[in-house]
Simulated assay, not measured.
Amino acid sequence: MDVLKQHQVHGGTLKYLRHDSVSTGTSMTLSVFTPAGEGPFPVLIWLSGLTCTEDNFTTKAGAYRAAAEHGVIIVAPDTSPRGEGVADDPAYDLGQGAGFYVDATQGPWAPHFRMETYVVEELIALIDAEFPTTGARSISGHSMGGHGALTLALRHPELFRSVSAFAPIASPTRCPWGEKAFTAYLGADRAEWAKHDAALLIEGGAAKGHFDDILIDQGDADGFLVEQLKPELLTAAGETAGQKVTLRMQPGYDHSYFFMASFIADHVAFHAERLKR
């Protein structure tokens, strides 16, 4: 990996990195915070939302103080492949910056938009090879990245000790963002969509026996709450499946990183406890 820039923060080291990805066939960028000391350390993967890069969480979430205190590496990849020859769309909610953490099967997206494979196979292997990890990892994210964190954890539970999300797209088969993206990336077959819907996966028992709790924070002043996010579908699914889902509705908070900065320490602590068991 090429080191693009490096900073010291809270006694640890933050690196912005670039590498050639086999999964996407493009260069991919990411940021990695490593606490002070020799390690090894457990890993928390963070998946960001629509329009974001590896930089939004790094500069806005204020997560690294808690990560340093708990001795956790935090990895934040970009949200999609990018570059010349990579398909795109003028809209903010499709194409570059909007990978939705699925492997596209439809043109023109299929050649490069393979974000599920990138995260669960290539990124994890790369981090374990290049950084002093314990091999234990958890996953979290925001909005589209919250959808990604939940669905990747539910589809690959053997890879993760715990999962949480901020304002996730809870059921992309039942909201405009998800319907648009899934039609483009996966085609018209809603049975394929259902394989990437967190609420439906929980309802079907995907979390049972793997996650003692799923932590969700959601602001009640979020402008996307009713039409796009629908967190109540996650708690309803958990009740059906007998899976604990802790939904914390936070009064007055919106969809921004100010919301995440207010509660990110709780999520780092939530994961650290489970990563060190």
Rank of each mutant, 00 (worst) to 15 (best):
L4A: 10
K5S: 07
K5C: 05
K5E: 13
Q6P: 03
H7V: 11
H7K: 13
Q8P: 04
V9Y: 01
G12K: 03
G12R: 02
D20K: 14
G25S: 11
M28H: 08
A36V: 10
G37F: 00
E38W: 03
V43E: 01
L44M: 09
W46Y: 05
G49N: 04
L50M: 11
T51L: 04
T53K: 00
R65I: 01
A76Q: 12
S80T: 10
P81T: 12
G83C: 14
G85H: 13
P90K: 02
Q96D: 09
G97F: 03
A98F: 05
F100T: 11
F100Y: 15
Y101N: 13
G107E: 15
G107R: 14
P108T: 11
Y118T: 08
V120P: 00
E122W: 06
A125G: 14
D128T: 01
E130W: 04
G135Y: 00
R137N: 04
S138I: 04
I139A: 11
S140T: 15
S143W: 01
S143F: 00
G146L: 01
A153H: 11
R155N: 15
H156G: 12
E158A: 14
F160M: 07
R161V: 08
S162Y: 04
V163F: 03
A170Q: 07
P172A: 13
P176L: 01
A181D: 02
L186W: 10
K195C: 08
D197Q: 03
A199H: 06
L201R: 13
E203R: 15
G209W: 07
F211Q: 07
G219A: 05
D220A: 06
D220T: 14
D222S: 07
G223W: 02
L225N: 04
V226R: 05
E227L: 02
K230Y: 01
E239T: 14
A241H: 06
A241S: 12
Q243F: 00
V245S: 00
V245Q: 00
L247R: 02
R248E: 07
G252A: 08
Y253D: 08
H255G: 09
H255C: 06
Y257V: 09
A261G: 14
F263D: 11
R274Y: 03
R274F: 06
